[in-house]
Design a protein around this nucleic acid. Structure first.
Length: 426
RNA sequence: GGAGGGGUGGCAGAGUGGUCGAAUGCACCGGUCUUGAAAACCGGCGUGGCUUCACGGUCACCGCGGGUUCGAAUCCCGCCCCCUCCGCCA
């Protein structure tokens, strides 16, 4: 949600920034109009309520003194005829205003490149050199099945398209990566390990911005009010909703492994092979709850924590700042980490690190009390993948494959894997 | 799934129809006292909205939503959550 103060004080600037994100100045104009209607109706309503309260109080006093209160009772009766009407008007305007506010995307940070799509993204740095192969590197969807560690066809039998089953060393590799990432973030980067529910309610999804607009991307349990989490960002960020935290406790850094469930509606024909785009995948997530003054430092740190995973796994990657047209609705600024995939000769997204500033905090009513005292303020929320585990498996297989079809296990994973090489049948 | 109990301010905990946004204690902030600290004493101390240059005024909030009443933290209905016991299950 965008700050109401900002909408009121500087509607032109908000309109201009929204323009860049596909919403126009007309949305701001509509907001201003609704807000005005809300305020005038509210003022009117509260005046009636004040008179009603006054009269009721008088009735009590008069009765206690044994006097007649007929006049006051009549006045209250009269007011009570008018109040429900006005109340309805107020709540109608309110919900219209809320619908509008919940539908508006966040405003981009000044440092974000403006543009309509990913072609306007800005490459910040390229880290590591793509390896030179003296043979034709295979894509993981050939390599994995050949090794007998990834099975898409059998997964389709029990579930359908866009699912995978790991066998043997593949399953172990997934588990090794999860443990490695969690150990790194808790041991070296100062995160608290968290294991949240994998199902959440609608309020949580409104809090982080998936609802009301993107319900089609989610799996909802039939006949129930639960949704499967599309990312651990949802449970983690909402964990402290409706709370007022102490500034001294910020930033709160949480990491969690969860599966993620996405319907991938509207992505037919995209990434149909392999485990790039599945209905269910695993992810280790990083979340910061930060004071506004520190949140952009936090974004750099969080991103560096995700990068560290790639570096230790000896995977070449680049860091990209998403343009205004390529960012998610909640983000004010997003860095994508794109890992090099030799099988596709392309950099592909493996992590997305965002500062949502106070956008989600407003929706989830996530606040903190400043150390110096004073009113509670909205904090800033950040999240990033540290990393998407399935895609990391892809990157490890493709980058560390050998000419004989085996895969060298990166040094840091060997204690977790119990081997330095994955061979057919492992 | 069945039976019972319970959700009040940062915490604990009173309050069963009006003068209750709410006693009291703890915590916290400011002050007095003290060489300093503690103790003691004095004062302050919820959140949001509307209005105001400001002082202030006002509305709402006692899990959430409805209802009864001139008037609801208090009575009635529905829902959510927590606890205990039984059943079932991992």
């Amino acid at each position: 949600m965008i700050s109401r103060d900002l909408l009121r004080d500087d509607p032109d600037r908000v309109g201009e920034l929204l323009e860049v994100r596909g919403e126009g100045a007309d949305a701001v104009a509509r907001w201003t109009e609704l807000d005005g209607r809300r305020r005038s109706a509210l003022t009117e309503l509260e005046e009636l309520k004040r008179r009603r309260n006054e009269a009721s109080k008088a009735i009590g006093e008069l009765k206690r003194e044994g006097k007649s209160a007929e006049a006051q009772i009549a006045e209250v009766a009269d007011l009570k005829r008018q109040i429900p009407d006005l109340e309805e008007r107020v709540s109608a305007v309110r919900s219209e205003l809320r619908d509008l506010e919940l539908g508006l995307p966040n405003l981009p940070h000044d440092s974000v490149p403006r543009g309509d799509d990913e072609s306007a993204n800005r490459v910040e740095r390229v880290v590591g050199e793509p390896r030179k192969f003296d043979f034709e590197p295979q894509a993981h969807w050939d390599l994995g099945p050949a090794l007998g560690i990834l099975d898409f066809e059998r997964a389709a039998k029990i579930a359908g398209a866009r699912f995978v089953t790991y066998f043997g060393a593949g399953a172990r590799l997934e588990r090794a990566l999860i443990n490695f990432m969690l150990d790194l973030h808790t041991g070296e980067h100062g995160y608290r390990e968290t294991l949240p529910p994998f199902m959440v309610n609608g309020d949580a999804l409104i809090g982080t911005g998936q609802l009301p607009k993107f319900g089609a991307d989610l799996f909802k349990l039939e006949g129930d009010r639960y949704y499967l989490v599309p990312t651990a960002e949802v449970p983690l960020t909402n964990l402290f909703r409706e709370e007022i935290l102490d500034e001294a406790d910020l930033p709160i850094r949480l990491t969690a492994f969860t599966p993620c469930f996405r319907s991938e509606a509207g992505s037919h024909g995209k990434d149909v092979r392999g485990l790039i785009r599945l209905h269910q995948f695993n992810k280790v997530e990083l979340v910061h709850l930060a004071a506004p003054e520190q949140s952009y430092d936090c974004l750099e740190e969080l991103t560096s924590h995700a990068e560290k995973v790639l570096q230790l796994l000896e995977l070449p990657y680049r860091v990209v700042t998403l343009s205004t047209g390529d960012m998610g609705v909640s983000a004010a600024k997003t860095y994508d980490l794109e890992v090099w995939l030799p099988g596709q000769s392309a950099y592909r997204e493996i992590s997305s690190c965002s500062n949502c500033e106070s956008y989600q905090a407003r929706r989830a009513n996530l606040r903190y009390r400043p150390s110096g005292g004073g009113k509670p303020r909205f904090l800033h929320t950040l999240n990033g993948s540290g990393l998407a585990v399935g895609r990391t498996v892809v990157a490890v297989l493709e980058n560390h494959q050998q000419s004989d079809g085996s895969v060298t296990v990166p040094e840091v994973l060997r204690p977790y894997m119990g081997t330095d090489r994955i061979r057919e049948g492992d």
